[in-house]
Write a protein that binds this DNA or RNA. Structure first.
Lengths: 157, 157
DNA sequence: TCTGAAAGTCACGAAGG
DNA sequence: CCTTCGTGACTTTCAGA
């Protein structure tokens, strides 16, 4: 009698959380290893992973790459403030075509959005800022990242 | 005669960049598929991936999970300002034991660090702020994320 | 560095409880 | 929802160019 929680957006059961924990740590872990670690048969794990993917709890898998080695050593945060407070709030759509923008967060506080960006150089950042202001009609405040003591650590699932 | 760029921290050659591009998009892509997409034999791709891993260009693989479904729906940015400007700068070490902190960036600007955190609730955020202030002797400024139009998009490799 | 082949592992669906 | 089982696909290594 396992504790079934909810079918779609509810909480996850212990075994599913264990699977997610392993896959966040090692996204290329084989089903065979996964099965051993969570104490189930390979097929059972296979079914659960597929269910987690369908349910959206597992949104995908990505390699982590070194920004320096791909020629994008400069990270920055850019906060956006609309110039015209009455303008329609379609900033994400106006900005998503810029590949230097890795993440876009709508936030509470003085500013409306925070962007996390990655560029090749200060000149690249300057050019990106120009593009952002032009595309979104916003004023910007930029905070340059000097170093990253740690990043994207696995959450405590 | 392929263009060898550098053995360790230099730039990467076109085929290697193609491999990284695919693996960032799909971290569980099979070597067989990878080989087809970059136009090489399976063995050659295999060797290149291993080399990219050893060189540190490929830092690992991670599953992307839905914060809501793992019970951590609240994201926030916390900026840190040291209370004692003369204190030794060991803030990352003082904070890394807090699993709610996903990323820690040392930044130029008014504040010294920006933390990206993920918690279960406003109460969890309040408790985390208390822990951060106590562990690191800093004053904090918190910006709560309301929604995330997009996040962790693959960089243009 | 590449290729191709051989051997071992693994993924994935079927059938059944 | 789990297990076992079987087949085809995949990974991984190695010799050779």
């Amino acid at each position: 009698m396992s504790d079934r929680s909810a079918s779609s957006p509810g909480e996850l059961e212990a075994t599913d959380r264990a699977i997610l924990r392993e896959l966040v740590r090692d996204g290329r872990c084989s089903f065979t290893d996964l099965a051993e670690r969570v104490g189930l048969s390979v097929s059972a794990v296979h079914q659960r992973v597929r269910r987690l993917e369908q349910r959206g709890a597992l949104q995908g898998y990505a390699a982590k790459v070194d920004g320096d080695q791909i020629g994008l050593p400069l990270t920055a945060f850019i906060s956006l403030t609309p110039i015209d407070p009455a303008a329609p709030d379609d900033y994400p759509q106006r900005l998503e075509h810029l590949p230097q923008i890795e993440s876009c967060f709508s936030v509470a506080g003085d500013e409306s959005y925070i962007l996390q960006v990655r560029v090749a150089s200060p000149l690249g950042l300057e050019e990106l800022l120009r593009q952002i202001r032009e595309a979104a009609k916003v004023s910007t405040r930029t905070t340059v990242v000097l170093s990253t003591p740690f990043e994207n650590r696995p959450p405590a699932i």
